Amino acid sequence: MKHFRRFPVFTQFRGNKPGILIGVILDRHNRLNTADLKARLKMIDLPEGNFNADEITEFIDQMQVYEGAMYEISTKLEILDDEFQVRFSHDPIHHMERRLKSLNSIIGKLERKGLPISVNSIKDNLFDVAGIRVICNYRDDVYSVSNYLSSQSDIQVLRVKDYIKNPKQNGYRSLHVIYAVPVFLSSGAHYTPVEVQFRTIAMDYWASLEHALRYKTDLPDAKLSEHSQTLLDCSRSLQNIEVQMQNIHRDINGAPQVGEAPKTTD
């Protein structure tokens, strides 16, 4: 069930009339339901046996840390968006989507990798349990926001994959950055990975359609191949259109122009 939460971005004054611009954060799932997660963990049937009470508690604690990291990053992004509006009269972020990987997705990914089902295995091998998709208006915004976020002193950049400069063979374009952000608990700071996908509006609706074609269709192979080629052509066309619109935006707006992806933290 998709849950929308609206938040005030900033107060804008036009003439003598103040107005509130409203941004949207889309949560793919509601906040972590520990009682439901505990019940589902008890029902998981694994080759090595069911989770014991200590393992269930440890798993739930770790999922709460991932959730905390996800909200830490999204709050930082909201603040950056606010600052851009004040400084440049421009909102770089159109909207954001947050999600925690489901229990089935976590276990399925560990099994596909041939890894043990344990909290330590998740912490050591999965870096996308917490995820945020940041939909920006222009390509400059993608690189500006990602670099400003990366430069914050409490942020570590673990991995960068720039599929905008180097699109996938199917035409997919997006900037993927895995950040580590501290989550402060009674036991101290726990640096926790969050995968952030930055993309423009055009990249996002292209990716949504391509995902539906790949995973949610019963089309025959010939039709699937035809549509895949059409989407590849569309991706190239959209890229050209985005460049032209970006150039117009640059001429009428003084927002920063950044054309490079963040660098990993040494």
Rank of each mutant, 00 (worst) to 15 (best):
P220H: 10
K216I: 02
Q239A: 14
T57H: 07
R98C: 11
I79D: 12
V86P: 02
E78F: 05
P182G: 04
S102Q: 10
D141A: 06
T75N: 13
D124M: 11
N240L: 14
I106H: 07
V177E: 01
M43P: 00
Y148N: 13
L80P: 00
N170Q: 08
Q12A: 15
F184E: 11
H249S: 12
R6I: 12
L219E: 07
D221P: 01
F184T: 11
D141Q: 06
D124W: 00
P92G: 07
N50S: 12
P18V: 08
I56P: 05
L185T: 15
V196S: 10
Q152K: 13
L32N: 05
K168N: 05
A202R: 11
V129P: 03
S151L: 08
R28T: 04
N170A: 00
I60A: 06
V196Y: 07
F184P: 00
K168I: 03
I178H: 01
R31T: 11
L209A: 15
K123P: 00
I106L: 07
P193L: 06
L21E: 15
D141G: 06
Q85G: 06
H90A: 00
Y148Q: 14
Y172L: 11
H90Q: 04
Q152Y: 05
R31G: 00
N30V: 09
P8I: 10
E195W: 01
D124A: 15
F127M: 07
I178P: 02
I122A: 08
V196H: 04
E78I: 10
Q244L: 13
R6C: 09
I22Q: 12
F4S: 07
P47N: 03
V177M: 02
Q12I: 13
P92W: 06
H227M: 15
K165L: 10
G19V: 05
R250D: 05
A189W: 02
Y66C: 00
D251W: 04
P8F: 04
I248Q: 11
N253T: 08
Y205H: 14
V177R: 00
Q246L: 12
V134H: 02
S121K: 10
G254Q: 13
K223T: 15
K42G: 12
N30G: 11
L46I: 09
R236C: 08
D266M: 13
A53H: 02
P167G: 02
I106G: 07
S74P: 00
S225W: 00
L77K: 01
I164G: 05
G108F: 03
R14V: 14
I164C: 06
E195S: 02
C234I: 15
V183D: 02
V119H: 09
A130D: 09
T230A: 15
K123R: 15
L219C: 09
K123V: 13
S102I: 08
N52Q: 03
N33T: 07
I79Y: 08
N52E: 10
L158Q: 09
L115A: 07
V160W: 02
L41R: 01
V119L: 12
S146W: 04
G114F: 10
K123S: 06
A53D: 12
V134Q: 04
I25K: 11
H176M: 01
I132T: 09
G131D: 06
N137I: 14
I252C: 06
H3R: 15
N125E: 12
V24A: 08
I25L: 14
R199S: 01
S237K: 12
D36V: 11
